[in-house]
């Protein structure tokens, strides 16, 4: 099968949005789900979250950050070219999709970090269309790395921005902004955080203090994405679960994030490790995520 790329946009440095013709996926997609994408016959199967979908036009939008060979390969394709495979939607839809009747009066806080902001969008949009209030925090290192701000503004009740360097919105981490909102007296029934594993870990630690129900969406390694390989194993509440079929969304307070972060690095190649160590030596930067180990 071939999946033509209808539109490609640069959202930030190394972050691209692609709208792909995939009528079956577009018809079946729900917030919270993901797809497996492959570019070229020698390509790797890469799980990517769904950023938007339009059943009427038969298209699905994905947002990709170039972090390795395979994501670079996908991002090197232009509108008019096609992805080799686009399988999905995979994983379980967000929990709220199954219980729309219980949503009346509920108030959500979504936290999107970096490229993880994209999959937050269809969730907020879905709730917005059903009159459910959702505030959104979008976090990034710096102003230029913030994505989906306009789209999110249109569907969020309140939109907050947070940058590490203070170049836009709140100066600080999303967790600090989260604390500030709660301390200010904002009341949320649930927090949903999607972003780098380390961000989700600290969001979980923060909301645990307030006893605030929190959901995270895990971006584990996968091969098939249908339950067959078990590469996406994660420990949740002391039990091993498969991210692809049991998730990707889990109760944040039950997830073993340290294990999940370690497992993400399992196939990091020697080449990448060496490159990271070189860069670290050159820049005097101390790697916080263990690439030097």
């Amino acid at each position: 099968m071939n999946y033509p790329i209808l539109e490609k946009r640069r959202l930030a440095e190394n972050i691209w949005s692609m709208t792909v013709s995939a009528p079956r996926v577009a018809r079946a997609a729900h917030p919270g789900q993901f797809v497996i994408v492959r570019a070229g016959e020698t390509g790797e199967r890469i799980p990517l979250t769904i950023a938007d979908y339009d059943a009427d036009h038969g298209c699905v939008t994905i947002v990709i950050q170039t972090i390795g060979v395979s994501t670079r390969k996908i991002c090197s394709l232009e509108a008019g070219q096609a992805l080799t495979d686009f399988a999905g939607p995979l994983g379980r839809p967000s929990e709220f999709v199954a219980h729309p009747e219980e949503l009346t009066g509920r108030r959500y806080l979504f936290i999107g970090g970096g490229v993880g902001t994209a999959p937050v969008y269809p969730q907020v949009k879905w709730l917005h269309e059903r009159g459910v209030r959702a505030d959104v925090i979008i976090g990034a290192k710096t102003r230029d790395m913030l994505i989906y701000t306009d789209e999110m503004r249109a569907v969020a009740d309140h939109l907050y921005l947070a940058t590490d360097d203070g170049s836009a919105g709140f100066h600080g981490l999303v967790t600090q902004l989260l604390e500030q909102l709660v301390e200010q007296g904002e009341r949320y029934d649930e927090v949903v955080a999607i972003g780098p594993m380390i961000m989700m870990k600290f969001v979980a630690a923060t909301t645990a203090k307030y006893g605030l129900k929190t959901t995270v969406s895990l971006n584990a390694l996968m091969v098939d994405g249908t339950g067959m390989c078990g590469a996406c194993r994660v420990t949740v509440g002391g039990r091993t679960r498969f991210t692809c079929v049991d998730g990707p969304e889990f109760d944040a307070h039950e997830v073993d994030f340290d294990e999940a972060m370690r497992r993400q690095g399992m196939y990091r190649s020697e080449e990448q490790r060496r490159a990271a160590i070189e860069a670290e030596r050159a820049g005097g930067h101390v790697c916080k995520i263990g690439l030097n180990k």
Partner: peptide, 25 residues
């Protein structure tokens, strides 16, 4: 279907894979 694991300690360490994963790769 889904690969079985033993349920023993250390099974989610890096370097433990199912035969399905090893063979599919």
């Amino acid at each position: 279907g889904l690969p079985r694991f033993m349920g023993i300690a250390g099974e989610n360490l890096n370097g433990v894979v199912s035969a399905n994963e090893f063979l599919t790769r």
